[in-house]
């Protein structure tokens, strides 16, 4: 498996767990979401914000660590190079 794909799937698995945590707490223990651990803001909002921020953080990690060399030998789009007429 290519490095980029492996990296992508690893990060995907991490996020999937984090998202499942959110969904399952909402489903099976909604009262947990009502607790206000930090600054009087409840878990529902903190967890939601964390999911959004961490999506961006993981995306950045992916962007930084992806290896560029794979693209050179796998750009299999011959038409694009012959037909472009700009």
């Amino acid at each position: 498996m290519h490095f980029n794909m492996k990296l992508g799937l690893t990060l995907f698995a991490i996020y999937l767990l984090f998202y499942c945590g959110f969904v399952f707490i909402n489903t099976f223990s909604p009262q947990t979401m009502e607790q206000t651990p930090i600054e009087g803001v409840n878990v529902a909002i903190l967890y939601g914000f964390a999911l959004i921020v961490s999506a961006f953080a993981l995306a950045l990690i992916y962007g930084v660590f992806c290896r560029p060399e794979e693209e050179v030998n796998s750009t299999s789009d011959p038409v694009a190079t012959t037909k472009g007429d700009v």
Binding site: Y15, A44, G48, I52, A55, A59, T75, V79
Partner: peptide, 30 residues
């Protein structure tokens, strides 16, 4: 709050798009 559940779900979907689908889509299709 409930409307925000959509916000979270709609954004989380992009993780699938980026980590799983983006590059192969680009390589395979036209």
């Amino acid at each position: 709050y409930d409307g925000f559940l959509y916000s979270v779900g709609f954004l989380a979907g992009w993780i699938v798009a980026l980590f799983v689908v983006a590059e192969p889509m680009k390589k395979l299709g036209k």
